[in-house]
């Protein structure tokens, strides 16, 4: 690894100060869990001049309900997501997604924020959060801004973050708390596999009309970034729930995807997976909606 100057930030404000000091005239990288960054730096021809370590910024490690919704700090690890009683109750899909990332060792180090900032199209944290219309909070030295996660990603390994900015938290909006959601990943092995395709679906249900409300479908590894499937969503909106409708939505979602062929899978195979996984994710989200209705639970805390 090329040498660099190392600074450890005490908290997020300290990190912003360090970024303000160095980002203007040096190449700065932020390290959180380091599971992606260090693996990259060991092979990089040109490393950063400065590394700012935020792994001790405890103010970015909270999982809390705020006025806006469920806030997950950028430094929350995948292991913490899997063990959070709040997340387990509201969003088992987030727990399932976290469980498919790497292995125990990497889940103990790797953070939700890091997974998003790295912006690999096959990331497993992205689809569930996109299907829940998550927002992200970005702090810079000019203040804070919030954008939808869908606008945070620019392309493979590219986000809208500026060199002196920090991802602070991820917010699942209040109106989506407890929304029945399901995540599915298709990899070539059970452990430590990257997704050939991953899909998340979330649905509300109009029980009187037996119809889908606000169906949201997000697809990973089939475009330069995690994407929504707008045509499939539009098809399902207000539509009577049936196995045929969910299968058709899967077929329509194929048209929303733009997969490429690479050494892991052909584009054709990925298109097939989009149809199958979208259908299954919808079926499971619908099943969860029914279970919660029977239990009289809306998936929210204390409900």
């Amino acid at each position: 690894m090329k040498s660099f100057e190392f600074f450890a930030a005490k908290d997020s404000n300290d990190a912003l100060t360090l970024l303000a000091q160095h980002a203007a005239n040096a190449k700065v990288k932020i390290i959180a869990g380091g599971t992606d960054l260090l693996a990259d730096l060991k092979f990089a021809a040109h490393g950063p001049d400065v590394v700012v370590d935020i792994s001790r910024a405890d103010d970015l490690k909270n999982i809390t309900i705020t006025e806006q919704g469920l806030s997950i700090g950028a430094l929350v690890t995948h292991t913490q997501i899997m063990r959070s009683p709040l997340i387990r109750q509201m969003f088992p899909a987030l727990v399932a997604a976290a469980h498919t990332i790497g292995a125990v060792q990497t889940r103990n180090l790797g953070t939700l924020g890091g997974n998003l900032v790295t912006a690999v199209p096959s990331m497993d944290s992205g689809p569930t959060l996109m299907a829940l219309e998550a927002m992200v909070t970005i702090a810079g030295n000019g203040g804070r801004r919030q954008v939808p996660l869908s606008e945070f990603f620019v392309g493979p390994r590219k986000t809208i973050l500026k060199p002196d900015e920090l991802l602070v938290d991820i917010i699942i909006p209040e109106q989506n708390l407890g929304k029945p959601t399901h995540f599915l990943k298709f990899g070539l092995r059970k452990g430590q596999a990257l997704a050939l395709v991953n899909v998340a679906a979330s649905v509300w249900v109009d029980w009187e009309k037996h119809a889908f409300l606000a169906p949201r479908i997000a697809l990973g590894a089939v475009a330069p970034k995690v994407i929504r499937a707008p045509q499939a969503e539009a098809y399902l909106e207000g539509r009577t729930i049936s196995p045929e409708a969910m299968a058709e939505a899967g077929r329509i979602a194929v048209g929303d995807a733009k997969p490429i062929s690479d050494f892991r899978a052909s584009a054709e195979y990925r298109r097939h997976l989009v149809a199958v996984l979208t259908k299954r994710a919808l079926e499971s989200a619908w099943a969860l909606a029914q279970t919660r209705r029977l239990e009289g639970s809306n998936g929210k805390r204390n409900a």
Partner: peptide
């Protein structure tokens, strides 16, 4: 961070010691 041969326990949690910097 793929093979786990470097696994050690840091503050009660198993991690890949090849993926932590000394400063951390």
């Amino acid at each position: 961070g793929d093979c786990g041969a470097c696994t050690v326990i840091v503050d009660s949690k198993p991690v890949n010691s090849c993926l932590m910097l000394v400063g951390q």
